[in-house]
Design a protein around this nucleic acid. Sequence first.
DNA 1: CGTGAAACCGTCGCCCC
DNA 2: GGGGCGACGGTTTCACG
Lengths: 166, 166
Amino acid sequence: MPGTRLDPIDRKILAELQADGRMTNVELAKRVGISAPPCLRRVRTLEEAGYIRGYHADVDARELGFEVQVFAMVGLVSQAEADLSVFEERCRNWSLVRECHMLNGEVDFILKCVAPDLSTFQSFLTEELTAAENVASVKTSLVIRGAKDAPGVPFDVLEDRLAREA
Amino acid sequence: MPGTRLDPIDRKILAELQADGRMTNVELAKRVGISAPPCLRRVRTLEEAGYIRGYHADVDARELGFEVQVFAMVGLVSQAEADLSVFEERCRNWSLVRECHMLNGEVDFILKCVAPDLSTFQSFLTEELTAAENVASVKTSLVIRGAKDAPGVPFDVLEDRLAREA
DNA sequence: CGTGAAACCGTCGCCCC
DNA sequence: GGGGCGACGGTTTCACG
């Protein structure tokens, strides 16, 4: 079971680095209550074990000129595994598509897209996405405003859950 | 117009820190072609100007025991601004809701949720989300698998666009 | 923006429990 | 097994040109 091999200090490290990924190791060590060397060893172990996939600056898309954010629901003609993979690979190559998730239910994929303006997005939509082979339907919804954008996972839920199991 | 006050070095800094938020300042300076002190000054300026909102470790939700990811489309009874704000504030207080975006079209909000398992999510769905006042309808879609999850914005699109304007 | 210097930090080897 | 101590080299971060 995942999560079992992590002790409370590891989880605190993950929570702290999720909240501030550029914290120095000594600050991190102070917060989790151990000295710097073992703290760094734990961080490296968590990175190598895949618990930490990377570190990213969270840049303000709007301030950078990406004024449009859109969710696109995509239905495919064929849901054979080979065709699904082809579509996913195509999404990875489209810069405007930031996220692509395969869903259950009537729609096959949900895409989160960004673009500098509506006309850029519409060109992408009509000339690339809708035009791609095997794409049956695309429904788009413009984001009017963002209300919450929390990174990663809720560690409070994790702790509650572990406390309840004990 | 946003983006105008940033020179090519600033954009390179943002792109590098988006790709690796824990890079040392000397490494960053080397990559953008200036020495460390002015590089650090630029980073601080970008942070204070809001271009960089923060830095976050990208943790693996599944490996941490969050096996369920769900998109929820929410329709409200009243779309008056006061009622929208109330709903948004409620989303901010729900740990399982990681993202909340207001949309145009038939659905009012899209929520990205995570949960340790389906029953945890279903409890949240029936006892909290659907039960909340002013919520008219909720349609959920389970994420079968993730195909792409790129952070932030595509800097190649930004550069293309600036090159075309010049 | 660059140089130099001082303080701090990341990292290693070793010892300890 | 993991944690702490001390020390070296690299880094951050000044003041100044």
